[in-house]
Design a protein around this nucleic acid. Sequence first.
DNA 1: ACGCTCTGAGAAAACGCTTTCTCACAATTC
DNA 2: GAATTGTGAGAAAGCGTTTTCTCAGAGCGT
Lengths: 341, 341
Amino acid sequence: MGRRATTRRIGIADVALKAGVSHATVSRVMNGNFTVDATIAARVRAAATELNYQPNPVGRSLALGKTDTIGIVVPDLSNPTFQAILRGLSMAAAQDGYRVLIADSSEVSSEEAILAGEARRRCDGLVLCAPRMGDAELEELAPSLHPMVLINRTTMDTRAPSLMVDYGQGIQELAEHLVGLGHTRLAFLAGPERSASNGLRLAGLEKFKAAHPGIDLQMLDGGSSFEAGHGSADAVLASGATGVLAFNDLVAMGLLSGLHERGIRVPEDISVTGFDDIPFARYTTPTLTTAAVPITELGQQAWHRMRDLIRNVPSDAVAEGPTVFQPRLEVRSSTGTVSKS
Amino acid sequence: MGRRATTRRIGIADVALKAGVSHATVSRVMNGNFTVDATIAARVRAAATELNYQPNPVGRSLALGKTDTIGIVVPDLSNPTFQAILRGLSMAAAQDGYRVLIADSSEVSSEEAILAGEARRRCDGLVLCAPRMGDAELEELAPSLHPMVLINRTTMDTRAPSLMVDYGQGIQELAEHLVGLGHTRLAFLAGPERSASNGLRLAGLEKFKAAHPGIDLQMLDGGSSFEAGHGSADAVLASGATGVLAFNDLVAMGLLSGLHERGIRVPEDISVTGFDDIPFARYTTPTLTTAAVPITELGQQAWHRMRDLIRNVPSDAVAEGPTVFQPRLEVRSSTGTVSKS
DNA sequence: ACGCTCTGAGAAAACGCTTTCTCACAATTC
DNA sequence: GAATTGTGAGAAAGCGTTTTCTCAGAGCGT
């Protein structure tokens, strides 16, 4: 029996005593159950407001079997993409009276499973962003995590909706855009090796290569951060490419900065593209050509799917298969026609 | 009928049954209470792992009177500053096994009080970022929110630690920096009228004016966003100022962009400073001179203070008065010597 | 007047756990 | 050998709600 050191919060019993009724009746009044006589209800309400009574959510949760809270597992809270997902999710959930609990796995993918389970148990559902988690592990975990919404992953467990971004299509459009500007030597600054979304980009680029045999496309190791992009400047220059597809906007911005330091002009000497269209992409110099992903909206959608799951909306009333978000080519000024040299 | 909708989660009773002991004993074993015979403990543990038993956190919370969760109220999750605080807080709290619950007030300050109370009741403590909340309201609310840590606010309730950033000092240093470069006509792009941190900046600038009677310092209405800065470009030009102190980095970046569009060179024609040193500040063109606030560290500190509160560390063992973070002048290339014109 | 349904409110049983209480049994002491 | 300690585990009492069960008493028809 947990004894609180601090002054006991006022509970339903205090209100009941003050109103001269049983706590059952207080509960009924508080929950708008109308099988209570109007005068008594008024008396209870008066007592409640006078004592400033607020029901204890933990007791409530235990009795109702729900917490009005959903969890989100993110690999890295400093990444603008996950920040945006979190924002969209949190705002949409708040509209329906739900709160969001954060579980940041700090890129430690070995912790992800435990973290996810922990968070799930505390909440009514889980949004999982785990780009590095192995397929097998995800598959094994999925049933125990339901209700769950997946971001950029899929699973055999058909109960778990997936929200995907078509990175393959987006990167192809960016590549096509560069080709349209006359570029024939391209380079892709790849993201983290094991990242699922990097895989999708690579697959897209394979298709692109098949469709454009004449184009030279080199693969360069990169990363997913500013620093990675900044550090790749020399490798990019060495590659001789005139058009560079960065893994994402962060990397592109780092690259922009690295090239600037070396006196390379963008887009006159080299064209650079990003991916995601993070808020800052339109304010870089030059402004960044990128593939815009409606990421806040994705966060919102994640909540809507989750809501359907929680409310047990029959699955046939809901789109089956993953929901795919199409990136939109956003041409700005970091790309231009190839310079003849 | 296919599968049963209600697959009851396995609870302590199942483990007790399987191990042939009472649930009290299971609880003892799970909590490392050593008054249990070793062989029985082993049997219980075996049963627990076999059934993959995980204690229900809600039941646990109710019994223990704690949730291992803290809440944070932020006015706007899209603001990089609050994102950074959240990140620092979340990571530090995670180290000690605590999770963070988000309550985004979406700048609706009328909702802040209810939101804060709601979040507080669900959690063991609350970190409050409410720059717009009225002093009186905060004062009234404070006792009911304890344990609480305040960001950039103070209250008479001495139990609530405050973490403050010395915006006044920071803005003075930036102004001094500009004066040192030869600027005599300055402008301050003010933030939101009712924002507490804007007030601190204004107070700092008053001191600055007193110390530098010869300097012309104009106050311009601005805001706190990119768009606000972008939209102020004309007003800035009209002011004739050669050095502009923007409310924060976001505003500065917007201004940079607006000036760029108008063909104004920075820092040759106009010097611009920001505030905060958000991650992107070092990647703008030109890179942004700003006052660096150790904001992630502030988030971390917020947790440490909260932890002391929760653990009931005697207040005399802890620094009294608000903890003040000093911004550090970060000179980059958006400021330069004044051009003679 | 007598049984009948209805209404409304208290008593009590969940919800899933922790922890105090209690007591049987074995191990010590005089 | 009886009284006295320990030891360890079950029974039960919380924690603060919601909700089912139960049952007085009022209103109605015959």
